[in-house]
């Protein structure tokens, strides 16, 4: 089987399991919406969000719900002992990693497809001023976050206190993604949009994605070999 064929099989497996009960999609989405609401109480003043708050709240919601989705996706594999099955399957380790990454990425992008318009409505954020740059920031930022997260969540499956350790490890390491995501989005949302600034952040995210996906591929191979 070709490499991409194996990746697709892993993605399809995850999507089929998810479509049957939609547990991760529903819970993650609801959690993301609750996060938006909870943070609004801190950053909405006189009916308007304070400066740059919309971008910040959006990315906090993405990071929080992303952690939840990552944890659940691998908890499911652990409970049913299916991770062992996956690791024993005659496919390359890197294909497994990319498959899991793509599955969680699709799920998070679906969540973003709901919460980004909500941010637009609730905080009067101009979503359609530079839609392509905005989508590029969201996609590259989510890829960076999920690339690091998939690796750590997969490795944490066999350790104790995995639920706490995932965010503890993930947030400090993905700080560049969060800063770039928040500042890039804030540059697009502000009254006079700063397109060059948003593009500078976007290029950093692309660079981060390339470096960390490569590193994670190598590390996954080295770590998940018994």
């Amino acid at each position: 089987m070709s490499f991409l064929g194996s990746v697709w099989l892993v993605v399809r497996k995850d999507l089929v399991v998810e479509f049957r009960n939609r547990e991760i999609a529903y819970t993650t989405l609801f959690f993301a919406v609750s996060t938006l609401l909870v943070f609004s109480f801190g950053f909405v003043h006189e009916g308007r969000a304070v400066e740059d708050a919309a971008a910040g709240i959006l990315w906090v919601a993405i990071a929080f719900s992303g952690t939840l989705a990552l944890g659940r996706a691998f908890e499911r594999e652990r409970q049913n002992e299916t991770l062992r099955g996956l690791l024993m399957a005659p496919v390359q380790r890197t294909a497994l990693y990319l498959g899991k990454l793509a599955g969680i990425l699709l799920l998070l992008l679906a969540v973003e497809a709901v919460i980004v318009p909500m941010v637009g409505l609730m905080f009067q954020a101009p979503l359609f001023r530079y839609p392509v740059t905005l989508i590029a920031l969201l996609v590259t930022g989510t890829v960076g976050f999920v690339a690091v997260g998939t690796l750590f969540a997969a490795m944490l499956v066999r350790t104790r206190s995995r639920d706490v350790l995932l965010p503890v490890l993930l947030y400090p390491i993905t700080v560049p993604v969060i800063i770039a995501g928040v500042r890039g989005t804030a540059a697009l949302f502000q009254v006079d949009a700063d397109l060059p600034m948003a593009r500078a952040w976007l290029s950093m995210l692309v660079f981060f994605d390339v470096v960390f996906v490569t590193l994670a591929l190598w590390t996954f191979e080295a770590v998940m070999t018994e």
Binding site: L169, V175, V211
Partner: peptide, 26 residues
């Protein structure tokens, strides 16, 4: 992390080292 966390920890240190330029840049 309990037993078996050594390799995961090694990955964290590796990612931490490669993060230096990105953290500083951002």
């Amino acid at each position: 992390g309990g037993p078996g966390s050594e390799r995961l920890a090694a990955a964290v240190a590796l990612f931490g080292m490669f993060n230096v330029p990105f953290v500083y840049w951002s």
